[in-house]
Amino acid sequence: MKTLNENAQSVGTILLEIGALLMSSGASTNRTRITMERIARGLGYGIELLITQRALMLTIIEKDQQHFFSRLKRISPHGANFRIVSGISHLSWNVMEQDWTIAQISEEVQRLKALPHYPRLVVLGMVGLAGAGFCRIFGGGYIEMTVAFVATVAGLFVRQEATKAKFNPYLCIFFAAFAASLIAGTAEYLKIGTEPDKALATSVLFLVPGIPLINSVTDLMDGNIQNGMVRAMNGLMIAFSIAMGLLSVKMILNF
C-alpha cells in the first residue's frame, strides 16, 4: 500500500475538499459518505466521518492504528452542479481500480471545479421552456405558456443577478418569485389569455426546491435523520419565500 510515502494530512485535505464539493453540489449524505470512504480505501486509509449540512468532520486512521489525523471543514453552499457529482464518482472508481495518487486526485478535482456551466442564455431559455412546460401540464394554452415563459426567464434572471450581488439566498428566491409573479400577475390583471391564473401559478414553479426536498427524503430513508430534517426545513423556507413573493404581488395587484 501507499501509506508509507503519502502523509495523512494531504489525504485528509483532499478528502474534505471532495466531501464539501459533493455536499454543496447536491449529493445525498449517504452518497458523500460512500464516495469519501471509497477514495480513502483506495489510498489505503480507514476514515470516520461526521457529515452535517454546513460542516464536515473527518478522522483518518492509519493502518498501524496508532496515528490519527482529524480536521473540520466548513461547507459553503453554492447551487447544484451535477457535473461535479458525476466527475467525482468517476474519480472515486479511478482511485479504487487504477491506484491514482494524491497528486492525480487533486489535479482532477481542480479540473472538475473549473468545468464551465452552460452559457447563461441557454440556461435562461431552457428554464423558460420548463416554465412553459409546467403551464401546459397544468392545462394552460399557448398564450398562457408564453406568459409563463417570459415570467420564468425574468424571474431566473433576477435570481442570478441577486445571487451575484450576494443577497441572502432566501431573499434571492423572494426577489425571483416576486419578479416572475409580477409579470404573470400583470398579464392576469390585463386579462391576457383565457386562463391567466394558470400562468401566475406556474410562473414560480422553476424555484421549487426539488433537490433539497428529494434529498431530504433520501437522507431520512437512509437514517441520516438530522440531515434530512435540515434539508426539509431548508426546502420549507424556500417554499415560504416563494409564497411571500407571490403574496406580495397579489397584494399589490389586489386580487
Binding site: 458525476s86 440556461v123 431552457m126 428554464v127 421552456l129 422553476f206
Partner: peptide, 13 residues
C-alpha cells in the same frame, strides 16, 4: 422538456 430545463439548471454533463 421541463426535466431538461432543470437538467441544464443543475449543470448535468
Amino acid at each position: 422538456i421541463a426535466a431538461m430545463g432543470f437538467a441544464v439548471l443543475f449543470n448535468v454533463p
